[in-house]
Design a protein around this nucleic acid. Structure first.
Length: 774
RNA sequence: GGCGGUGUAGUCCAACGGCAGAGACAAGCGACUUAAAAUCGCUCCAGUGUGGGUUCGAGUCCCACCACCGCUACCA
C-alpha cells in the first residue's frame, strides 16, 4: 500500500481547514488505512510507503538527479550520463532542464500546471481559469522518448484502447518541413506540414502569434495592428482561443514569402489558430484541403486553389468549385511536378525534390510536449538544486533528502514567487547559493512507488539489485509488474510518466526491464444507484463504512465482484448487496444451525460422508470454474458457480463435510471473514477432518476431470438449424452412432419425409444439425 | 469532429460460432408461523438496439446506422 500524499488536493484541503498539510495528510491516511483494513484486503502492510516520507522522497529526489545528470544520446537512443555529451551546452540536452517558456498559470491556485492538468482551459483541480504566461520552469525531456514510448507499447498486455490513447497523446505524425524565403529579406520561415503534396495549393503562410520571427516580418505600417493582435491573444485563455473561438482571427504582417516550388509570392499572417508549441509554430495554409485554413481564407478573402482531387467521382462534383474543402487523399492536380500522382506518391516525390534542393526535408513531429515539472507549492518534494551566480547545480546524493522547511504560512504568495520564498533561512543554502524554490508535481512520487514496494526500507538504494530482479524480473517480457489494475483516468498521465522514468532508469542500468507494467486492466467505475457518477452534489454517494456495518465487509467485497465484469462501470444497488448477503447466510447455514437458545452451533447434519456422484461433479466443476475465473479476473461468474455449489448442498442431509473443506478455501479470497469463522468452528468440531490452520492458507483444491463427466448427454437435433427434437445418448457414443440415432429418431423421420438429406453436422456434446433440401 | 467501449427478461448480468439463461435483484404463488419477518420450495419474464451480409448454424464474425458511456479535440 502506498500513499500518494503530496500535491495540490492535499494542500488545498489543508489551506481550507487551516491545518498543516502534514497533519491533515496523516489524519487522512490513518482514516483511509482503517477503512481499507476493515475490508480485510490482503495488502502487505510491512511494505507500506508514503510519498511524503523523507525516506521515500529521498529517492524521488535521487531519481530527479539521475534525470538531471543524463541526456538521451541520439546515436544509441539511450539515456547516458551527461559526461558522455561532447557538445558545449549540456543544459540543452539534459533530461531535466530549465526553460523559460509560456506555461499554464492558474492565478486562483497560484501555480503552473502541466498541459495534462488543464482541461478546456481550466484547471483539472478546482476548474479555475488558466492563462498563458512565460516563466522559468523545470522541465523533463519526455519528448526524447516519444518514439520508444510508442513502439514499446507493442510488447505490453494492455487493452488496445489504452495503447491507442497513449499513441494519440504522443501524436506521431509524419510530414515535412519546408523553408519559405521572405521576399526582400534574408529571413526564412520553416513550416511543418503533413501534406507536402499540397504545396502548390499554399496561398498564404501563418505564424503563431508568439513565433520568434513575427517582429522581423512585420512591416512598419502593420506594426500597430500586429502588436494589438498579439496582445489580445496573450490575454486570452486557452479556452477562449480554442473552444470558444467560433470565428478565425488573424492579422497580415505586411511581408511575403516565396513558395519554393513555383516562386509565387504569398502573404504572411499571424493567427492564433496556429499553435506555438507544435511543429515549427508556422504553417503553410492550403485552404482547399484543410478545414481550418479554409475557414480562415473565407473569413479574410484569401485565394483558394484546388490541388488534390478526390478519386471518388461522386465528390468530384463538389470539387468543381472551391467553396468546400476536401481534406482527404486523392490525385494531385494543378501541381506541375506532381500532376496525376496519388497523394502518398506525391508526398514522397515532393519531399525528395525539396531535399535535393535544400528547401526542406521529411520529418516526424509529435504532439507530446516536454513535461512541466515544477509547481509553485509548498506541499511537494523540494528540488535538490541550488542556484549560484544565475546558474543551477545539483546537490550531492549525501545531501538528500532535502526536506521542506517548517512553515506556518505556506499559502501562495499571490505572485509568481513560490511559497518557499518566504522561508528565508531555508532558502539560504550558503553565503552565495540559494535553494530552488519550486517543488515537484504530485506525479513525481507516484512515478516509481511500485519499485519501492519491492524494497521499502532500503537505506542504500531506491531498490536493491536483488529485490529488483526478484520482483520485477519478468522472464523475457518487457514489463516488470505482472498485473496493474487501475482506472482509465491514468491512461495518459501517470502511466506515461511512469513509463518514461522507468525507461531512463533502465537505460542508466538501474533496472532490468524497459517497461514498468506488463499487464494492465482497467477496472470500471462503480456508479451511484441512479447510474450516474457518484458525487456529493448528486447525493448518490455510497459510504462503504455504512455498508460494512450493515452487511459486513464480506458482503461488500462479494457484491463488488458479483456486480459484473471488472472492466465495466456499473451502478451500485443496495438490493444487490442483500442478495449476496443472503448467499453468505446460506453458506453459513451449510455448516451452522441455531440451537434452542438461539445460539449458532455446528450443524448436526454434517458428517464425514461420501459425496454422491452429482455432488462430486458439482464440487469439482466449482473448483475448476473458480480457479479459471479467478485467473481471468471473471469474479462474477466464479461467484455464480459457488452459488450453484452451495444450492446443491443446501438440501442435503446428511451433508458431507468434505464439501466444505473444499468450498471454504475457494470462497475465502472473496469472503475471508466468514470462511475463517466457519473453518475454525468446524476445526473444533471435526478435529481430524483436515480443517487445519486457516482456510486462506490451506492448499488450493485441485479438480479431477474424471469427476466432471456424465454418463449420458442430451443432444439437440436440428433440421436446417431449427431445433426439432432431443436425443439422449451415452457419453461414449461416437459421431457415427450419434448421427445414426438422430436420423433414426421417429419424430425426425416424420419431418424428413420426402426430403433429401444433404449433410449432417455433429457438434460433440451439443447438437446434431441435419441439412436437407426440399 | 476524432478514437475507444457498451447495447441480451422490469433490473444487474451469463452464454469456446452450436438448444438464448449460470447466478442474482424485483415480482407472483406456496410451505413454515397465531401473525409477520427470516427461511425453504416453486413460478413468471426477452429471441439479443436497427438494417444488411458471411455460415449448415450468428447474441457472438463483417459492413452501415442508432442510442448511451468514456477519452480527446484548431496538433497543420
Amino acid at each position: 500500500m502506498g500513499w500518494d500524499a503530496f500535491g495540490l488536493p492535499a494542500e488545498q484541503y489543508a489551506i481550507k481547514t487551516g491545518q498543516h498539510p502534514r497533519v491533515t495528510t496523516e489524519k487522512n491516511i490513518d482514516r483511509f488505512r482503517t477503512q481499507l483494513q476493515s475490508l480485510g484486503f490482503s495488502y502487505d502492510w510491512s511494505r507500506e510507503v508514503s510519498t511524503t516520507d523523507p525516506e521515500y522522497f529521498r529517492w524521488t529526489q535521487w531519481i530527479f538527479l539521475q534525470l538531471y545528470n543524463s541526456w538521451l544520446n541520439p546515436l544509441t537512443n539511450r539515456a547516458e550520463p551527461i559526461s558522455t555529451y561532447a557538445g558545449n551546452d549540456p543544459d540543452s540536452v539534459r533530461l531535466a532542464f530549465v526553460s523559460d517558456r509560456p506555461v499554464n498559470w492558474c492565478p486562483e491556485l497560484g501555480t503552473v500546471l502541466a498541459n495534462e492538468e488543464v482541461v478546456d482551459g481550466r484547471s483539472e483541480v478546482g476548474g479555475f481559469p488558466v492563462e498563458r504566461r512565460p516563466m522559468r520552469q523545470w522541465m523533463l525531456r519526455i519528448t526524447a522518448y516519444s518514439e520508444r514510448l510508442i513502439s514499446d507499447l507493442d510488447g505490453l498486455d494492455w487493452p488496445d484502447s489504452i495503447k491507442q490513447l497513449q499513441r494519440n497523446w504522443i501524436g506521431r505524425s509524419e510530414g515535412a518541413e519546408v523553408r519559405f524565403q521572405i521576399e526582400g529579406s534574408d529571413a526564412e520561415v520553416t513550416v511543418f506540414t503533413t501534406r507536402p503534396d499540397t504545396l502548390f495549393g499554399a496561398t498564404y503562410i501563418v505564424l503563431a502569434p508568439e513565433h520568434a520571427l513575427v517582429g522581423d516580418l512585420t512591416s512598419p505600417e502593420q506594426r500597430e495592428a500586429v502588436n494589438a493582435y498579439k496582445k489580445s491573444c496573450s490575454s486570452k485563455s486557452d479556452l477562449e482561443r480554442t473552444v470558444l473561438a467560433k470565428e478565425k482571427t488573424g492579422v497580415y504582417l505586411g511581408s511575403s514569402a516565396i513558395n519554393p516550388v513555383n516562386g509565387e509570392k504569398i502573404p504572411v499572417w499571424i493567427a492564433d489558430y496556429v499553435l506555438t508549441g507544435y511543429g515549427t509554430g508556422a504553417i503553410m495554409a492550403v485552404p482547399a484541403h484543410d478545414e481550418r485554413d479554409h475557414d480562415f481564407a473565407v473569413t479574410f478573402n484569401l485565394p483558394i486553389i484546388e490541388v488534390v482531387r478526390s478519386a471518388d467521382p461522386s465528390r468530384t462534383q463538389n470539387q468543381a468549385n472551391v467553396q468546400t474543402c476536401f481534406s482527404g487523399e486523392g490525385i494531385a492536380v494543378n501541381s506541375p511536378l506532381l500532376e496525376g500522382l496519388p497523394t502518398s506518391e506525391a508526398k514522397k516525390k515532393i519531399i525528395l525534390w525539396l531535399e535535393e534542393r535544400g528547401f526542406g526535408r521529411g520529418t516526424i513531429t509529435y504532439k507530446l510536449r516536454d513535461w512541466l515539472f515544477s509547481r509553485q507549492r509548498y506541499w511537494g518534494e523540494p528540488f535538490p538544486i541550488v542556484w549560484e551566480d544565475g546558474t543551477h547545480r545539483p546537490l550531492s546524493h549525501e545531501e538528500l533528502p532535502v526536506e521542506p522547511p517548517e512553515m506556518q504560512d505556506f499559502k501562495p504568495t499571490g505572485t509568481s514567487e513560490p511559497p518557499l520564498s518566504k522561508a528565508t533561512e531555508w532558502v539560504r543554502y550558503s553565503e552565495t547559493a540559494r535553494r530552488e524554490l519550486n517543488t515537484m508535481p504530485q506525479w513525481a512520487g507516484s512515478c516509481w512507488y511500485y519499485l519501492r514496494y519491492c524494497d521499502p526500507s532500503n537505506k542504500d538504494r531506491f531498490i536493491s539489485k536483488e529485490a529488483e530482479s526478484y520482483w520485477m524480473g519478468s522472464g523475457g517480457k518487457p514489463g516488470g509488474v505482472d498485473l496493474y489494475v487501475g482506472g482509465t483516468e491514468h491512461a495518459v498521465l501517470h502511466l506515461l510518466y511512469a513509463r518514461f522514468w522507468h525507461k531512463v532508469l533502465f537505460d542508466l542500468g538501474h533496472l532490468t526491464t524497459p517497461e514498468p507494467f506488463q499487464k494492465l486492466v482497467n477496472q470500471g467505475m462503480i456508479l451511484g444507484d441512479d447510474g450516474q457518477k457518484m458525487s456529493k452534489s448528486r447525493g448518490n454517494v455510497v459510504n462503504p463504512d455504512e455498508v460494512v456495518s450493515e452487511y459486513g465487509a464480506d458482503a461488500l467485497r462479494l457484491y463488488e465482484m458479483f456486480m459484473g465484469p471488472l472492466e465495466h462501470g456499473k451502478p451500485w444497488s443496495m438490493t444487490g448487496v442483500e442478495g449476496v448477503y443472503r448467499f453468505l447466510a446460506r453458506v453459513w447455514r451449510l455448516a451452522m444451525t441455531e440451537d434452542q437458545e438461539g445460539n449458532w452451533v455446528v450443524s448436526d447434519d454434517l458428517a464425514e460422508q461420501e459425496l454422491t456422484g452429482t455432488q462430486r461433479r458439482v464440487l469439482h466443476a466449482t473448483i475448476k470454474k473458480v480457479t479459471q475465473d479467478i485467473e481471468s479476473l471473471a469474479f462474477n461468474t466464479a461467484i455464480s458457480q459457488m452459488m450453484i455449489c452451495t444450492n446443491e448442498f443446501t438440501g442435503a442431509n446428511p451433508r458431507p463435510i468434505g464439501a466444505l473443506r473444499i468450498l471454504l478455501p475457494l470462497l475465502s479470497p472473496f469472503a475471508p471473514h466468514l470462511c475463517e469463522e466457519i473453518w475454525s468452528r468446524l476445526a473444533g468440531r471435526f478435529p481430524n477432518s483436515g480443517f487445519m490452520g486457516l482456510a486462506s492458507q490451506s492448499s488450493w483444491p485441485n479438480w479431477n476431470e474424471e469427476y466432471l463427466v456424465v454418463d449420458e448427454i442430451t443432444y439437440a437435433v436440428q433440421i436446417n438449424g431449427k431445433v426439432r427434437g432431443h436425443l439422449t445418448v451415452a457419453t461414449s457414443a461416437d459421431r457415427m452412432n450419434i448421427e445414426k440415432s438422430a436420423l433414426a429418431d421417429t419424430s425426425v423421420q416424420a419431418l424428413l419425409e420426402g426430403k433429401e438429406v444433404k449433410k449432417v453436422i455433429v457438434v460433440p456434446s451439443r447438437l446434431v444439425n441435419i441439412v436437407v433440401a426440399d
